[in-house]
Each structure stands twice: as C-alpha cells, then as structure tokens.
Amino acid sequence: MSANDNTSGGIDYRQLGADYWRTDIIDIEPGKIHVRGYPIQELIGKLSFPDMIWLMLRGDVPSPAQSRLLEAALVASVDHGPHAPSIAISRMAVSCGLPLNGAMASALNTLDDVHGGAGQQAVELFQRIREHIAQGMPLDEAAKVCVDAFVVEHGKYLPGFGHRFHPLDPRAGKLLGLADEAAAEGAVTGEYARIARAIEALLASGRSKPVPMNIDGATAVIYAELGFAPQLARGIFCLSRAVGILSHAWEQSGRGERNKGPMPRQMPYRYTGPATRHLDDSQ
C-alpha cells in the first residue's frame, strides 16, 4: 500500500478509523467546532456551565427549571472541609511538589464507593423502589422491601441517609425544597422525592433518634428526577467536588509547607506492634 493509498484488500482504512472513533458529541474541522450540532460560538455567552454539562451528557439543552436544579446540586457538593479525604489528599499532594493537575487527579481518584459513591448508590436504590412501585407495590412497602434487601447485601450503612458530622445536613433540606418547587412547576415528576422521604420515614420508625437524609440522598433525588443514570450521579459529583479540590490545592500551594502529613507532627501516632527485638534474640 502506497503512502497516499487509503485502501488495501478492499478495506478503506480512513473510513475504518473514522468509524472506530465515531462520536455523537463533537464535530471538529478547521475553523469549525460543533457541540451536539450547535456551533460553539452560538453557545458561548448563552449557555451556563450546568447547561453545557447537560448538553454534553444528554444531547440537548435543559429547560431553565432543569438547569436551576442541576446547578443547585453542583453548588451544594463543592466542598466539605479539609478533613474530607479528597480535599486532604489534594493539600498533601501539593505539599509533596505535585502541580495543581496532579493534586486534582490524586484527589479525584479517591472518589470511589466509600467516599464519593453514595449518590450513585442512592439513585440505584431509589430506582429499585420505583420498579417495585411500577409493579403495583405500595410506596411504603416497596421502600421497606428494598431497604431490607440492601442492608442484607451491603450492611447497615444506607447511602444518602445519616451523617457522621451533621445531626441534620444543612444542604439536604434546601435541595429537597428546590426539587419540590421544580415538581410543582412540572419540570420533574416528584416521584423520587417521595421515595426518598419514604425511606427517611422508614428509618425514623421505632427510633429515638432519626436518620435524616444527607446531601448524597438529596442530590440523588435531583439526579434521578432529572433522568441521569446512576453512574452519572457519581460523575457529576466529581465535577462539583473538583472545584473544592482545586480551591484547596491552590490555597495550599501558597503556604510553602513541605510534605504535609495527615496530622500535625506534634500529634503522635500510637504504635501497636511488637516490643523492640533484635535478630540475635531469635538465633
């Protein structure tokens, strides 16, 4: 095959390459950038960043009510203090000499099932309950059946409910209120908010201390109401938390600390291994 020949044995390699990297998301040629069919210059200055996220992930432009609800979830999840593992890691990484992008990558990689995955898990739970309701099961019964099954499979920690730091998460109520407003406007159905509240009521039943919904549960309501897949609940959370990670990494970069550890040097750790011993003692 010559350097200028794009075919061999009946195979069009240029077309093969084009098909291999096919995408519905973006079309680029010299002097042209179209995102989901829209010229980029028509989007700049008109779409908000939440609108752009929606367009990229969903292929169309959200309504104003949908955009406001998505933006609220993004704003609420940006940061939760330097003790949050992802934030702490960004600070430690910068003090070890990593640039901002390295610190952000290190921090984002911690957002897995335990730290960062609760939103996805909550959406999955909500959807299972909705499936039972669609089959004719009453809401309260469906909530109990699915919560019991989740606890048997995964343990007692229910994603989206309770918080190790906040007796009442200050973000959850506001987000749920906005979801209710969107439902009243007809922008969402409100069914996932009802499901989440049914779980909250179930967890409070027979307890002296309730287990209220936290931000992961409230944002899961929003993402489910807006029609995002469970995996995207985690992905969008990563987009939001990346802002806090960047902010803390940037602040840390101006402090001049080197090799920042997980706790001040003045605070000792506790050693629990064997007492001092020597190789000669065992010979």
Rank of each mutant, 00 (worst) to 15 (best):
M213L: 15
C238S: 04
A233F: 00
N214Q: 10
E200C: 03
Q231L: 14
M213F: 00
A218Y: 01
G217V: 07
V243D: 15
L203A: 05
L226K: 11
G206R: 08
V243Y: 14
P212Y: 05
P210N: 04
P230R: 01
S205L: 06
R234K: 10
P210T: 04
I222D: 15
N214F: 00
R234S: 09
A224S: 15
A201Q: 13
L232H: 03
I245F: 10
A220Y: 00
A204L: 01
V221P: 04
P212T: 09
V221K: 05
A242T: 10
G244I: 09
A224Q: 14
C238Y: 00
A201W: 03
M213G: 06
A201F: 02
S208I: 05
A229H: 09
E200W: 01
L226A: 13
A229D: 15
P212M: 06
E200N: 06
V221C: 04
S208C: 07
D216C: 12
R241N: 12
G227C: 09
A220H: 02
G244V: 09
D216K: 02
P210W: 01
V221A: 05
R207M: 04
S205P: 02
V221H: 07
S205K: 04
A204S: 07
T219S: 09
L203R: 00
L232Y: 06
A220N: 11
I236A: 07
L203Y: 02
I245H: 12
S208V: 08
I222S: 15
A242L: 03
G217P: 11
A229Y: 02
A201N: 09
I236P: 13
V243I: 15
A218I: 00
I236L: 12
A233G: 13
E225N: 14
L202T: 02
L226F: 03
V211H: 10
V221S: 01
E200K: 00
Q231I: 15
A242E: 05
P212C: 10
A233Y: 00
N214E: 14
P210Q: 04
I245N: 14
L239R: 01
C238L: 08
V221R: 04
V243C: 13
R241E: 12
V211Q: 12
E200M: 04
L203Q: 05
I215D: 12
A233I: 06
D216H: 02
G206Q: 10
P212H: 08
A218F: 00
F228Y: 13
R241W: 01
K209G: 05
P230V: 03
R241C: 09
Q231C: 12
D216S: 13
Y223P: 06
Q231R: 11
A204M: 02
A242M: 04
S240A: 15
M213S: 11
G244F: 07
S240N: 13
A204F: 06
G227E: 11
Q231Y: 05
P230T: 04
Q231W: 07
C238M: 11
F237G: 08
T219K: 01
I222G: 15
A242P: 01
A224V: 11
Q231D: 15
L202G: 06
I236R: 07
I236K: 08
L239Q: 12
G206N: 08
S240I: 06
D216V: 05
G235I: 06
L202A: 06
K209Q: 11
L203H: 01
L226G: 13
K209R: 06
T219I: 11
I245D: 14
L203T: 05
E200P: 11
L226P: 08
V243Q: 15
I245A: 13
G206I: 09
V243A: 15
